[in-house]
Design a protein around this nucleic acid. Structure first.
Lengths: 259, 259
DNA sequence: TAATTAGATTTGGTTTACCAATTAATTGGT
DNA sequence: ACCAATTAATTGGTAAACCAAATCTAATTA
């Protein structure tokens, strides 16, 4: 089993300009989330309690109700709050410690650490492809073959095919028949594409090399060969990962050059 | 390597009442997302284009601007739109096919398929623990030991310790040093806790049995033994999963009983 | 006294109005 | 005809206003 990604050092790859940009003030909603966090961790808001009315919170925090609602919406997505229409918003029954851990992450969840992104994608897809090899239907195979053809056509015409590549991987995620894993992969893909395109990670030869790799992944899924599918995908992603690292190092040098 | 989860059939575990509830009309924001999807897939909105102004969209869809904003916010999280203040909201450069695939998922992303949830958690944590075994710092070990102690104390007092259990797993996620994977695990945890508590998945003996399992996970992480960490965690989660399946089957029988 | 119910109040849901920044258009000068 | 500067219109950001459902209160009745 191949897990070469383990142990790779996290390289700080932010350029100077990006670093500047990332100092942006946190959004008003995130500020409110921070305030709510303090209310909870300080014990003023116990698990199970009802939150003060949105209007009250808005006034208390000196901000419009829109932001309070946005913050509540976000915390609701994480399962930390539950709002009942015309009744009130309630703190989940989770303990303070758990909430504290999670809220901290709600605020700082972003996808601009490219290495973390690549790594997460790597593992998630490996998981997905194993499930796909086990559960794929005939329809899934159809979808995969079509996506593979689209990719080959683009490549053979000498065009960029980053998105067709991703589409192939999306079909794998769908074939996993696990909606949660699929959703998580789907969340990452736009950012992956963005970074790959921006940093011109894929050379022309890379595109052609990927074709047989895709084919062997598909073949393994067709044959329900879990191990083969895992290995084929790992090899495929490892190639990309190494190339992207090289691209980033080059980028780093460019960015750190005096202007 | 243990991957017993593969191939387990997806059991429909929704109770009658929950099924009823899930027929709820999709939120106004999701409806708008659907409309936007159609605008994009029909070609009226090309990748890179600027969206009509929020006011225009609101009027066109016959709804308040808040909902349009909520929809845009959601699509922005998925990287499908980018809004520039005082300028406009722009469609990402992704191809129509990719956007179509993703938007479909944006609407139906929910975490109420408990089996998918458990399975995703299983794989994500397995990934996390491998990374944690490789990258953990002394501080991480401290955190893990503390979490483990909290758990043991609760259990030895005969109390419920579902959250302390989760806290231990949260610390593992943090030790992975991958913010994306950590965030994803954190998103799942409240729903996991909710389901576990609601379905009384953990009996008293289960709590005690988990103590040595936790210890061996910690030991493997301390020793940077990746394989051991993976195996220990897999065993731990497999135990829980089987118990939870049993719990669910029991639940199913209860729910399908005539009332 | 206890249960009930009509009304007032508070809630989140939804829409609208206002603001500052940006962009487009127009004007005036060259 | 072209360019610069000023103005007008449009944008998303923000706050406030309105609505209907849910809740609480208290008077009323059995």
């Amino acid at each position: 089993m191949v897990y070469q990604l383990i142990g790779k050092p996290n390289i700080c790859m932010k350029s100077f300009i990006e670093t500047i940009k990332s100092i942006e003030v946190e959004s008003p909603a995130d500020k409110i989330i921070g305030q709510l966090k303090q209310l909870i961790t300080s014990g003023q808001l116990q698990p199970g309690d009802r939150l003060p009315a949105e209007r009250v919170l808005a006034e208390k925090f000196g901000v419009g109700r829109s932001y309070v609602r946005e913050a509540i919406l976000k915390l609701e997505f994480y399962g930390l709050l539950k709002t009942n229409p015309q009744s009130g918003t309630y703190v989940s029954g989770l303990s303070i410690k758990v909430m504290d851990s999670i809220i901290t992450d709600v605020i700082k969840f972003n996808k601009d650490d490219f290495n973390a992104l690549l790594e997460a994608r790597y593992y998630l897809e490996l998981d997905a492809v194993k499930l796909a090899a086990e559960r794929r239907t005939e329809q899934d195979l159809e979808n995969l073959r079509e996506a593979l053809l689209d990719y080959e056509n683009k490549i053979n015409n000498g065009q960029d095919a980053v998105e067709e590549d991703m589409l192939f991987h999306i079909k794998i995620a769908k074939a996993s028949k696990n909606s949660v894993i699929e959703s998580m992969i789907l969340i990452l893909i736009p950012d992956l594409i963005k970074n790959i395109v921006e940093n011109k990670i894929c050379g022309e030869n890379r595109g052609k090399l990927a074709i047989p790799e895709h084919r062997s992944i598909l073949k393994a899924i067709e044959e329900r060969d879990i191990d083969a599918a895992e290995n084929a995908l790992a090899a495929h992603l490892n190639d990309m990962f190494q190339i992207s690292q090289a691209g980033y190092n080059a980028q780093k040098i460019i960015n750190s050059a005096p202007n």
